[in-house]
């Protein structure tokens, strides 16, 4: 009996290490080592300056870099504007339809990303019904296009990452005690002020998470630009893909990858500092 009591308190000192070991090994093998290999590649072959790839990344592809962040930022803002009201309605007003609506938000994931983007290519295509309809209504000039435009790419990014915005916002709204809204109204706030002073601040962790989950993959995306854009909408992701797979300029491709990663990291750090979510939880 004393033995069992002891067994409960005497812990195996190796237990925590054993628990994290598989994850650590995984990260070492599939994240850290490839990253180091990539870093090695980025400083170029023998005979050229180590910064050659990086120099070319900025001089030759600076505009693609800027465009990537501009498109990703715009897509994030659009996803937020579309996603927040939707998440709000699902969390507070949907009643019994809540699970159905959540299911619909997740539904696109049952089809792959690539197929869905191809579907948009068909919808927005020059011979498609949408262009025809808009042309008939004179909302689009003749010879006007939807496909291969900036807005097609931004729209595609917004569409593809919208669920990643909606779900975290929904979760943070769902956690908010409804009585807090009543309390705010009791304390002289109308519905809008109650939202601004209570609901919105309490949902910021969700907005924060959703924005990161949208912005980061969107900044590195190449499918949307490739399928829905023209060379004028080419994003950095496409350049990297091309350099790795077609041109086979590995040092440049690796350098571009590092530049993208670094800038995303810096932006995320700034964003975290600005929103300061650790105090909200």
């Amino acid at each position: 009996m004393a033995g069992t009591a002891m067994g409960g308190t005497r812990r195996n000192p190796w237990a925590p290490w054993l628990l994290v070991a598989p994850g650590v090994l995984w990260l070492l093998a599939f994240y850290l080592l490839p990253t180091l290999a990539l870093a090695r590649t980025s400083v170029g072959p023998e005979g050229v300056a180590w910064y050659d790839g990086y120099q070319r990344a900025f001089t030759d592809y600076g505009q693609h870099l800027l465009r990537s962040f501009w498109y990703a930022g715009l897509a994030t803002v659009l996803a937020l504007l579309l996603g927040y009201p939707l998440a709000y309605v699902i969390a507070f007003r949907a009643g019994r339809a809540k699970n159905l609506l959540l299911g619909l938000v997740v539904l696109p994931f049952f089809t792959t990303f690539l197929v869905r983007t191809f579907a948009w290519k068909t919808i927005l295509g020059d011979e498609g019904w949408l262009v025809g309809l808009l042309g008939t209504l004179h909302l689009l000039p003749s010879e006007g296009r939807l496909l291969s435009t900036t807005w097609a790419v931004i729209g595609g990014l917004t569409y593809n990452f919208l669920p990643f915005m909606i779900l975290p916002i929904y979760v943070s709204l769902e956690k908010i005690d409804r009585r807090l809204t009543e309390a705010a109204q009791d304390l002289y706030c109308n519905a809008l002020e109650a939202f601004r002073k209570v609901v919105l601040p309490l949902s910021l962790p969700g907005v924060f998470a959703g924005s990161l989950l949208t912005f980061i993959p969107a900044a590195g995306d190449f499918i949307n630009a490739e399928l829905l854009g023209s060379p004028n909408q080419k994003m950095l992701g496409s350049v990297i893909q091309g350099q790795f797979l077609t041109v086979r300029d590995y040092p440049l491709a690796a350098a571009l990858s590092f530049v993208l990663m670094t800038i995303i990291t810096i932006l995320v750090l700034i964003y975290t500092r600005l929103l300061g979510t650790e105090e909200l939880a």
Partner: peptide, 20 residues
């Protein structure tokens, strides 16, 4: 009259303090 225009205030059952 809506609650925010009434000069009465409520102490809620589970307090409903603003956590943030």
């Amino acid at each position: 009259t809506p609650p925010y225009r009434r000069n009465v205030n409520t102490v809620f059952q589970h307090y409903a303090l603003f956590p943030h």
